[in-house]
């Protein structure tokens, strides 16, 4: 089972972007999400983040995400970068 080695972050607080901060965890995948479109797309963003984290074989991770209207591809890209900076990866799934 893989684990996150150190806290890391990626992304910005600009429009259409998302800032993602990951930290080692001990209680499963714990996601704290702030989003300007949480009402409409909160569940979809949550699903994208959890799916991507699981694709790395990670079971314990704290994720904080501050979303400014990022599309799915940008959410995945920022999360993958944060995980890579945290010492996990590289990812081997497709880029879509």
């Amino acid at each position: 089972m893989k684990s996150v080695l150190k806290p890391a972050q990626a992304g910005t607080l600009e429009s259409n972007d998302i800032m993602i901060i990951v930290e080692p965890g001990a209680n499963g995948i714990v996601l704290e999400l702030e989003s300007i479109v949480k009402k409409q797309y909160g569940e979809s963003i949550r699903q994208t983040i959890v799916e991507t984290v699981k694709s790395y074989g990670l079971s314990d991770l704290n994720v904080k995400a501050i979303d400014k209207g990022a599309l799915d591809y940008a959410i995945r890209a920022r999360l993958v970068t944060a995980l890579s900076r945290a010492g996990v990866g590289p990812e081997r799934e497709g880029k879509a």
């Binding site: 799915d72 591809y73 940008a74 995945r76 890209a77 920022r78 970068t81 497709g94 880029k95 879509a96």
Partner: peptide
């Protein structure tokens, strides 16, 4: 690193 990841995904999305 962040830009590469973003551009690679933008190209296919």
């Amino acid at each position: 690193d962040a830009a590469r990841e973003l551009v690679a995904r933008a190209l296919v999305t």
